[in-house]
Amino acid sequence: MPRISIIIAESTCLIRKGLSAVIQKLGNVEILQSVSNKVELCDIVNRLKPDILIANSNMLDSDCEDLKKHFITANKMSLVLISEDKSIEDKYNADAFIHYKDNQSKILDVLEEIVNRKAEKKRTNKSNETLSSREQNILKHIALGLTNKEIADQLFISIHTVVTHRKNITQKLGIKSVSGLTVYAILNNLITMDEVK
């Protein structure tokens, strides 16, 4: 299963550390960073692109809407808000809420549900998608026996991009070898048998 990445944004040291400790009890997650400074938050979230952002509502205040729009939809990130009282549930639109008075099992329940949902999404995204037209095009070139360098030159992209595409193709199809990919390409009419040397 893919690991789920988390960023914690909370100015109070006690809560930040305490929450980290509780989250460690969930398997399959990693905390990328804990942020205590409001100003840095936007940058860090943008750079690290976590799957889940757990933030105190006072870290977001007026900017919250902005943050939601820009990061949360663009990065497909889930937002979990921490707060003292329940009234924020009406004020903000988050995927889940954690309250100061929640006990450990309540917090774990809330987070686990989100983590599972994320993990499920990640998995189906990776394995069930069919190839994009770009990937099909790359696959066609691979099947014709071109090297990464040759493909990059022909399509005017960097070798690095070709390698990334190849990785994704292999992951989606479950086929690693060039000759295996060639058979797939023929079966799916991306190339004809005569084109293969």
């Binding site: 199809l173 479950g174 086929i175 690693k176 070898s177 000759s179 295996g180 058979v183 079966l187 799916n188």
Partner: peptide, 15 residues
Amino acid sequence: EEKLMDLRTIMIKYV
């Protein structure tokens, strides 16, 4: 074994 794995994947998934 890589090719072998590919072959069975192809036979199971794509043919």
